[in-house]
Design a protein around this nucleic acid. Sequence first.
DNA 1: AACGTTATTTCGTATTATGAAACAAAGATA
DNA 2: TATCTTTGTTTCATAATACGAAATAACGTT
Lengths: 259, 259
Amino acid sequence: MKELKSSVQKTFALLEYFTIQKPIWGVTELAEAIGSNKSTVYRFLADLCRLGVLYKDPVTEKYGLGLKLFELGGRVQLKSAFVDKTHPELIKVAVRITETVHIAVLKNHQVFYVDKVESPQGLKISSHIGSFNPAYATALGKTLLAFLPEEIKMQTIHTIMDLKKPIAFTQNTILNKTTLLKELAQIKAMGYGIDREEFEQGLICVAIPVFNQNNEVVASLSASGPANRFEEKKVADYVATLKKGANAIQHKIGFFKPW
Amino acid sequence: MKELKSSVQKTFALLEYFTIQKPIWGVTELAEAIGSNKSTVYRFLADLCRLGVLYKDPVTEKYGLGLKLFELGGRVQLKSAFVDKTHPELIKVAVRITETVHIAVLKNHQVFYVDKVESPQGLKISSHIGSFNPAYATALGKTLLAFLPEEIKMQTIHTIMDLKKPIAFTQNTILNKTTLLKELAQIKAMGYGIDREEFEQGLICVAIPVFNQNNEVVASLSASGPANRFEEKKVADYVATLKKGANAIQHKIGFFKPW
DNA sequence: AACGTTATTTCGTATTATGAAACAAAGATA
DNA sequence: TATCTTTGTTTCATAATACGAAATAACGTT
């Protein structure tokens, strides 16, 4: 690899090619995609296989992500101390609400999708666990921002709205800082946030904050559905159910805090 | 690090120190545990943090496993193409059976625990997702072995019983190859396997095979509970419920095969 | 049988990693 | 408040690993 990069960086850069959409690669194919010599890539692949980080199909000679990553992923505290505990509560909420339920945390001024439970009757939502979305344009994000401690909130909003130049996703996306601050104040007052097609056309999302037992906001919990199915009365019902879920979650996670 | 090892190996060796039991390390503490210079370890930690593989708590200056591993773990096909689909079925089984339900695959001649759902009424089982256990001494393992294609089965049993010298976990552990082969024949005939305190004192486990839509055995599904609660009648009921679960799983996983 | 493609190995050279030492920062102690 | 101790962070000469061109092996296609 003709770049000034540590081997650690190269290793994880290589692992990035193994996606949900394309989970399987051959040596030459991957070398071409990376722009590296195939003997270099071959050695990385061989090393990673020995460690169980990748596996090699003996028949096709193609490589895929291995059990070691599955196991390491399970040791991340977000998984072992949070998702494993909250997942059953998401299921209960999804059963009652019959829409897709998500839980997310704030990371790098964005929402990071941590888990979701789809309802058979619910709309298929394109969100992807393990991915980021803009905090300012999602119910999950706005709700997380709204309940942050005041100083952290102002710093974060400054970063998002002034330094990082927000973009519009739909006509409804809030791009003005003052407008966003008013919106967050309203979310704080009402105890829940709504994304009215601000991030995705045709999609409405209702979110409420999730606190730990130190009363720190650690996540947000939401229900998403098509715009034509969200009536005012339903919103109140959803909020009530989400709050029950959030209370149960608070009991289960103790003082857990995703840094 | 004074060893002849690639940086890839060193990287994953370092990540191994971040366990469920001890998820958080400081620079010097980790360097001492590894037996490496703290400036070397510091650079690895810094690199891994920039990649999101680790995170650093800004207050305590300690390190923990980061979101990137959570996300990579979610991209492993065993997770995205299997666990995500089978988990709801495990829940349904656990609700009916009111014991702990596990699903495992065969890897390196051992059972690899992939998922589990505990029942509130169930005994707390010490199994750990992402860990291995001996195939010859567990219901999950014996059942997987029993339903393997004949040639692969004989090879695998040769490896386990002749080359790897099995050890006893309890007085009931099967150590004789001929005895094990008879046991597997019986499991094949009955369609389910039982571990009668062969792996853990006081614990009985019933497992059935899970097939994909190519009729290849890809996993096994089990219910575990204390020995004093397992009566003959209950076994038949459990097997029936587990079979329903396995059928539902077969429908959901298509031709998926954990390599 | 010949050809094309991909996987795998070799070895001289290029690049990265190491660790001792020094410095910075912060908490503990007198 | 000053001093000491411990941990985190940085520097740089040296040691070790990584690289890639070329060759070989393996396998599928024609």
